[in-house]
């Protein structure tokens, strides 16, 4: 059987078509085929969350989904949500609150935080911690990340 597949999908608003080895996972696809290197690769076992990508509106592990499975799907990476300003407030809060040091985990945290606030606009600190439990940060100790997400939740509520 052919170990390659043809796929067509929409990534950050643009349609792309490629012929790729079937074993290519989605995060490698966006990084190496599309040169969108904002999504990172840590563990490749679903544990760290560095590879978080949005598929059809929901966050997924980019290392645990094949690019072939995203054929026909709408995919958004950290580049897409940055360019659209969708998460500008979260990015500002992470920056101002020092919620990142090396930045390796940050794209995953931002996409995860955005999904949390979409589901639960005013989460408690415990709810924030439970929701980001699938993302590892080896630098900050999480406190500042929880602060930043909490602050943006408050700002968005106040703006309504």
């Amino acid at each position: 059987m052919d170990n390659n597949v043809e796929i067509t999908l929409t990534v950050n608003g643009q349609e792309v078509s490629r012929r790729i080895p079937a074993r290519t996972n989605l995060v490698d696809f966006v990084r190496y085929e599309l040169e969108l290197t904002g999504s990172h690769v840590g563990c490749e076992q679903g544990v760290c969350g560095a590879c978080t990508i949005r598929v059809n509106g929901d966050i997924v592990r980019g290392c645990l989904m094949l690019a072939a499975q995203a054929d026909g799907a709408t995919v958004e990476t950290i580049e897409g949500v940055s360019d659209s300003s969708e998460i500008a407030d979260l990015q500002r809060a992470f920056h101002e609150r020092n919620a990142l040091q090396c930045g390796f985990c940050t794209p995953g945290f931002l996409l995860t935080a955005q999904e949390l606030l979409a589901q639960n606009p005013s989460p408690s600190r415990d709810e924030i911690r439970a929701f980001i439990s699938g993302n590892y940060c080896r630098c900050t100790g999480y406190q500042a990340i929880v602060d930043a997400i909490e602050r943006v939740a408050g700002e968005r509520q106040a703006a309504e």
Binding site: N25, E44, Q45, G46, R61, L64, M65, L66, Q69
Partner: peptide
């Protein structure tokens, strides 16, 4: 969902010839 299978494939704990999605 691939959330167990993909991890075992990435670790090469198993190496099937065909994946049926």
């Amino acid at each position: 969902g691939g959330q167990s299978l993909m991890a075992t494939l990435n670790l090469r704990l198993s190496a099937p010839e065909v994946l049926i999605d």
